[in-house]
């Protein structure tokens, strides 16, 4: 575990110095939200549409920034030193910790900007939305991390990442969008329990599969 935390701190310090992911994520958020605002103009948006747009922006921002954690190691050639000195489980755990923190930070900013810029985006049940936000972000971080590891050794990384991520993240995004609609409607946590359990199952399955699969991805 100490090794995994060290990899997380290494990535965090590296990110602060190189800004590999943060810059691309920040640019994407600014551009995506600006395009939505310009195209919508004064047209009134329904609350459900803003929920869909929120998770669409979150999905594509994950696609633009989260692959960097493995891709930058591969591009700079530092992959090998990690393979020599760290176990696959520690590498995956460290990278997952980093991506989880990044997802939470970026998605909190996106959600904050949505609530400031879109008057229709009003959450009536904040507790439900918070639970959905946490579970959803963790699911996105796990899926994105393992897919980033898969595509890091491929040629057309930029194209492959969203293509591989789309079928994996689609069920999660659909449920998250549905649950965000529930929290906009003010439904209680009890009423949304089935959907919440689906997300918990998704997170557990993705985490288990990723840990089991990572050994094979990490080695030749």
């Amino acid at each position: 575990m100490k090794s995994a935390i060290s990899i997380f701190f290494k990535d965090w310090k590296s990110e602060l110095r190189t800004r590999y992911s943060v810059n691309s994520l920040a640019m994407f958020i600014i551009v995506a939200i600006s395009v939505i605002l310009f195209s919508v103009k004064d047209e009134p948006l329904s609350p459900y549409l803003t929920a869909g747009l929120l998770w669409t922006v979150i999905f594509f921002s994950a696609m633009s920034g989260l692959s960097r954690t493995f891709v930058s190691e591969e591009e700079r050639g530092t992959f090998l030193i990690l393979q020599i000195i760290a176990s696959p489980l520690n590498v995956f755990s460290g990278k997952l910790l980093f991506n989880t923190l990044l997802v939470f930070l970026i998605n909190s900013i996106i959600t904050l900007l949505f609530s400031l810029l879109f008057s229709a985006f009003i959450i009536k049940n904040i507790y439900l939305f918070t639970a959905v936000f946490f579970l959803g972000n963790f699911g996105i971080a796990v899926s994105s991390t393992v897919i980033a590891a898969i595509i890091s050794k491929a040629g057309a990384k930029g194209t492959l990442y969203p293509v591989l991520s789309f079928p994996v993240l689609l069920p999660l995004i659909l449920i998250l969008s549905e649950l965000t609609n529930f929290s906009i409607d003010g439904k209680s946590v009890e009423e949304s329990l089935t959907e919440i359990l689906v997300i918990i199952c998704y997170d557990v399955i993705m985490l288990t599969v990723s840990v089991m699969l990572f050994d094979f991805i990490w080695k030749d």
């Binding site: 590296s14 110095r17 030193i81 020599i84 000195i85």
Partner: peptide, 30 residues
């Protein structure tokens, strides 16, 4: 991994860290 030291020209360390930081950080990761 815990028992092995490895040096080769194709092994690349982190350019954004100092030499001392690299040595310290990589030892802890190991």
């Amino acid at each position: 991994q815990k028992y092995i030291g490895y040096a080769a020209p194709y092994v690349v360390f982190y350019d954004e860290f100092t030499a001392y930081e690299n040595l310290k950080m990589l030892s802890v990761i190991q």
